[in-house]
Write a protein that binds this DNA or RNA. Structure first.
Lengths: 245, 245
DNA sequence: CTCAATTTGTTCGTATGTATG
DNA sequence: ACATACATACGAACAAATTGA
């Protein structure tokens, strides 16, 4: 007969459950340092009022964070922060070819078999496609957990110069060591995206979790793209450092 | 008495609704070019099998994308892609102070009033805090829609050199024009994050939508941080271009 | 032209999750 | 904790349009 909900005007109606929105808002506040370890967070009535949602919704959010170990609620006292959120941004992306190589030098790629290799896509920057490419896919690991998925097209003529190396090591590292290769241009693009099914599975995250998609195109002195990489990083474990001067 | 669902092993049980996960997976496939404009996508029974979800769930996802104009289903025939996804990444982030200034030069910031300014946080790179800061918050607009939220701490001694300018123009641009300021170091860090409530509201996106968080610290020749900015961009409208050579 | 296979559209029943008051 | 409503998701069956043999 009459409407039941429709309350929150703070959280717009995206159809993702309210209690999850509340939970991630609280989590962000802790990560940002607005509430620190040991602090008492706002009371449930306060949160009710601030977010404009029902009590149970707040409770459900708090319960979630409690089972993560982030919060601890005590009757008659309040709810306290019981854990420092971990810093997971240990993967630092670098500017410049040499420093980029340093960071990926001792990465151990785990190569995967590929059934239907996609055709290489060049970005808007152009360059020309080679006649034929070899496609490689690998997962980058750190402490046995995956943080990046690499899809690389290498010009076949280049690949054939040292196939054994390309099968076992990071392609970009091999590439720069080949004596007969002259690099004309090297360009990188980063966008923020979301993991689709297959990627999510390989990176062991949920579908639609945010990712950083890096496209790297290396061209030789004849402007032919000899290396086209698409690297998808877990959004939660990378950091980009840039000196501006 | 008996369990009803529990089917999908493809989509892990994050509690965000299945049909949304399916919808965004399909959307990603179109964006990635796996299904192009005019293509017929997999049939509903195929998708059912691939994702391991019920028919209604697929339908709900397809309906969603249909009302976005991305898909169009025809009885007896199939479901077709009816729209090229738009390229929205028109905000290009730059490396290097001079090119950074160029891109933000004609941005029109809309300044906001702030009740309780947060205290400035320095990153791990260090430097020293000034005695006192002025806090400014502004929203960056393009075509009347917000794409970035800027929180800046400016050392009060610097702010006082040209308060009128700082109140109306982009702070970094003003800063570099001040004659008595010698910049020692300028450093930027980018991480991928998610919009919390207030940010989401100002940027007009849903809570928890992915964002790019850029921290920029400028120090003078005495290693004092005179400019500490935290800029939060909508994740879906920025692109980072880097020449590697 | 008819038939069968394929594909989307619709509906019923049921169980569980989300959110309000 | 309770009563209520609406949303999500499963399963199964059937209807309607399209296509090609």
């Amino acid at each position: 007969m009459n409407k039941a909900k429709q309350k929150s005007d703070v959280f717009q109606r995206s159809n993702i459950p309210l209690y999850i929105q509340v939970a991630s808002t609280l989590r962000r506040r802790i990560e940002q340092g607005r509430w620190k370890l040991g602090d008492k967070i706002s009371s449930i009535p306060e949160l009710e009022a601030e977010f404009g949602v029902a009590r149970i919704t707040i409770r459900q959010a708090v319960d979630n964070l409690t089972s993560e170990g982030l919060l601890s609620a005590k009757q008659g006292k309040g709810t306290y922060v019981t854990k420092e959120p971990e810093e997971t941004r240990w993967m630092t992306l670098e500017i410049g070819l040499s420093s980029l190589l340093q960071t990926i030098e001792d990465n151990v790629p785990k190569f995967l078999k590929v059934e239907n290799p996609p055709s290489p896509r060049l970005g808007p920057r152009g360059g020309e496609l080679a006649d034929e490419y070899v496609f490689l896919r690998s997962v980058q690991l750190k402490n046995n957990s995956p943080y990046g998925l690499v899809n690389v097209h290498i010009a076949k003529s280049v690949y054939d110069m040292s196939p054994e190396d390309f099968k076992t090591r990071t392609a970009l590292a091999v590439l720069t060591e080949l004596p007969d290769i002259k690099i004309g241009q090297a360009h990188q693009t980063l966008i923020i995206s979301a993991a689709e099914m297959e990627t999510a599975h390989l990176l062991k995250v949920d579908v639609n979790t945010s990712t950083a998609e890096v496209r790297c195109v290396v061209r030789n002195d004849q402007n032919i793209a000899i290396y086209i990489a698409e690297i998808i990083y877990r959004g939660d474990c990378i950091r980009f450092d840039i000196e501006l001067l």
